[in-house]
Structure formats: C-alpha cells, structure tokens
C-alpha cells in the first residue's frame, strides 16, 4: 500500500507539466523515504530526475517499494482537473494497476461547483440532483479524457483513477560529481535568456569565467550575448546570482532541450546550473524543502 498526501498539490501539477514534453512514459518509484522519477527523453540526450522526500508530505505511507508506470500526458490531463489550491493524495495498492488521485478543495465553495460538474456528465450512477448522496460515480465523458480513467466524486473530493502501465525504463547511475562551476540565479531570468536566445539560433554556449556567466548564441540572423554577474547581496534571496568557480568552463548545448527544462520555472524562484568540462550540465530547480527536479543534458561536442 502506498499513500501520500501533498497539501500543496500544485507542486505535483507543476512537476508533471515540467516533464511531460520531455518524456512520454516514466515510473514513479515509491520508497519509504521518497518518491522519485528518473527518465530519459526518446533520443537519450537528456534525463529528468525528480525527488520528493517523504518528509515534505503531510501524510506518507509506503509499505514496500513500488514502481508505478504512468503516461505523462494522461497524468497531466487528470492533474489539470485539480485546482491550484487543492491538496492531492496519491494512493496505490501493492499489486494494483491504477493510481488513485484524490483532489480536495480548500473550502466549501468548491462543493457547489462540483454538483454542476457532476450533473453535466453523462452516465451517472445516481440520479441528477442526488448531490447529498455520499458518493457517485461517473464515466468519463470528456473528449479530451476519454479512455484515460474513471472519475468518482465524493462530495467535496474528486477521485481519479489513472491507469498504470508496465514500463521497462533504463535506469542510469549518475555518479556524484564535484562540478567546477555552480551558478545559482533567478529561475525566471534563466527562462527569459533561453527564450530570447532561441530567436537567434539553436545552440547555446555557456561560458563561466571570472567576469561572470556568458550565454551566447550565433545564428543566421546574428549573434546574441548575455552576461550575468555575481550579485550575492541582492535584497531578496531569489534575486541573487551566486557563482562558484574552480576553473573556467565553456560548454555548448541544444537550446531545444534547455527550453524544455524551463517548464519547471514555476516550481521555484531559483535555478542552479552545475557544469564541468565535457560532461552533461545539471539544471536543478529546488522545490522548497520538499525536493527537486534536476535535468541532465549532454553537451554538443566537436566533430
């Protein structure tokens, strides 16, 4: 039996948004100290690694390790039905083939919305107007969600069942590495740089020197360069730019993938870039005290 309740269900919504364009299918690995996801994109150029520690949940129970294979697009569709303020509880039986997701609204107002929602759906087991029934079950009848799962409504709770699948994913061992360069900067600023650079070309060079971090792109249109300097004493923590450098590093990367990574921007105000010569970059978004989402991207190398 696995059961985990996240008061801030938004984190789960944002996490799936942050990986669904990169990976189609993945396993949620549950253990008694965390839930984690590791998956590569189809072309095996990048990898996403998620960790949410059990301590970050307000209820967490995992009797034995479980791997829950899911389709990211389908999970994203179901999570879109959760409000940003909803608490989300995940539940799975040890030998089950579905993941139950329970969304609970923060206040009673949502119950009223809910009745309308339920009456609007076809195939209800209970007659319309039976909002005072404890529980009723509705076949999913929304075009976008057909075949994805079943929705059960219990008063102020929405319970969705996501079909699970067996996924034989290749797990990679990622060595602990002392990176030569660590850059911490506002995640929004990083997103903006990646977006702007994509206008000019498809390959980004990131170069870290004593001067600061230089993001550069060369394309048919022209060239672009952005220099970010250390700013460790900014008033707000999230505005700080901190650069730790043992030696200068310059690497080049496909902007297409970096752009996928910036889908995680909403998860936190800060992004951390780790680089060493000739190895994949790590783009990490810390998620409060709960965990992180890290992306690894292989560099472009000289032919």
């Amino acid at each position: 039996m696995f059961e985990a309740r996240l008061t801030s269900g938004k984190i789960l919504k944002q996490l799936i948004e942050a990986l669904k364009d990169l990976v189609q299918e993945a396993n949620i690995d549950c253990s008694d100290d965390e839930i984690s996801i590791q998956a590569m994109d189809n072309s095996h150029v990048s990898l996403v690694a998620v960790s949410l520690r059990s301590g970050g949940f307000d209820h967490f129970r995992c009797d034995r390790p479980l791997s829950l294979g899911f389709n990211a697009t389908n999970m994203g569709k179901i999570l879109k039905c959760a409000g940003n303020e909803d608490a989300i509880t995940l539940k799975a039986e040890d030998d089950g083939d579905s993941l139950s997701m329970v969304f609970e609204g923060p206040n009673q107002d949502r119950i009223a919305d809910f009745g309308e929602f339920a009456r609007g759906a076809r195939g209800s087991d209970s007659p319309p107007g039976s909002r005072r029934e404890k529980c009723w079950k509705i076949d999913f009848n929304f075009a976008t969600m057909r075949g994805v799962g079943v929705l059960v409504v219990i008063f102020d709770r929405k319970i969705y069942e996501l079909k699970l699948m067996d996924i034989d994913s290749e797990q990679l061992g990622i060595p602990d590495t002392d990176y030569k360069v660590t850059i911490q900067m506002p995640s929004g600023e990083f997103q903006r740089i990646i977006r702007d650079m994509q206008v000019l070309g498809d390959t980004l060079s990131i170069s870290c020197t004593k001067e600061g971090v230089k993001f550069g792109v060369q394309g048919d249109l022209g060239t672009g360069n952005v220099l970010i300097r250390q700013n460790a004493h900014a008033e707000k923590d999230e505005d700080r730019v901190m650069i730790e450098m043992e030696e200068p590093v310059e690497l080049t990367f496909a902007l297409r993938y970096l752009n996928f990574f910036t889908k995680a921007t909403n998860l936190g105000p800060t992004v951390i870039l780790n680089m060493s010569p000739d190895v994949p970059i790590v783009v990490e978004y810390p998620i409060g005290e709960t965990g992180h989402i890290k992306y690894y991207l292989a560099p472009k190398i000289d032919e």
């Binding site: 150029v45 797990q171 990679l172 496909a254 994949p280 690894y296 190398i301 000289d302």
Partner: peptide, 14 residues
C-alpha cells in the same frame, strides 16, 4: 562543427 553527444556515453546503465 559540433554534434550532439548522447547521455549514455556519460552515465552507465544501472
């Protein structure tokens, strides 16, 4: 020119 490296060249399968 530069070509895209694959991730498997850096990380071993578990």
């Amino acid at each position: 020119g530069k070509k895209q490296a694959g991730l498997m060249g850096f990380f071993a399968k578990k």
